[in-house]
Design a protein around this nucleic acid. Sequence first.
DNA 1: GGCCAGGACACCA
DNA 2: TGGTGTCATGGC
Length: 214
Amino acid sequence: MKLLKVYDILLSTSGPQNWWPMDGGFSPKEWEVCIGAILTQNTSWNNVKKALDNLKKENIVSLEKTLGTNEKKIAELIRPSGYYNQKAKKLKGFAEFVKTFGNVNNFLKNIERDQLLKVNGIGPETADSILLYAAGKASFVIDAYTKRIFSRMGMTGKEIGYEELRKFFEQNLPRDSRIYNEYHALIVDLGKKVCKPKPLCEKCPLGRKCKKII
DNA sequence: GGCCAGGACACCA
DNA sequence: TGGTGTCATGGC
């Protein structure tokens, strides 16, 4: 089964997911996408929405406002997204990094993946989410569902790493950010419906607490 | 009451 | 280099 075929099947059965905007232009919305990418780390999007709503109520949805608001205040507002102290620190650090580009527009135009990965709190998935959904660059986002689903389909190995899996997708799909955008969203949608984690070994004494799950 | 969610990082052997 | 602990809320 080809990756593009899987994409076509998912798109035809689930329909477009309408995740983050892909209008190509840079707007204040793009900063919200960056914030969302950090807030959603190991967190359901429903909780992220609550945190984003709190930030919007306080009108803290721009780079300038994020820079001008103290960390404690941000932590209070993003509390529903969990890990709020860590995430507040990450948001402030990320904002300081973006500031070195002058503005969000310039950051999104010029940012490179390797630079992003050096920022504290920005790991591979968050970096790719920002590159793809905020900057519109063709960087495929891998998450736990991607790993589980495609290894269970027998298309990849169970122990495949993030970078290897990302290259697998990027080398077997047209280099089109619109496809990457929709594909990742479709994978997450499918994962939520049918792909819960389970122990690798049914006899594992740790049961569902076993980390070796795929 | 436990599991899970659109992870990342520090620490240790 | 790989394994483990920590961060934490809210829905089911």
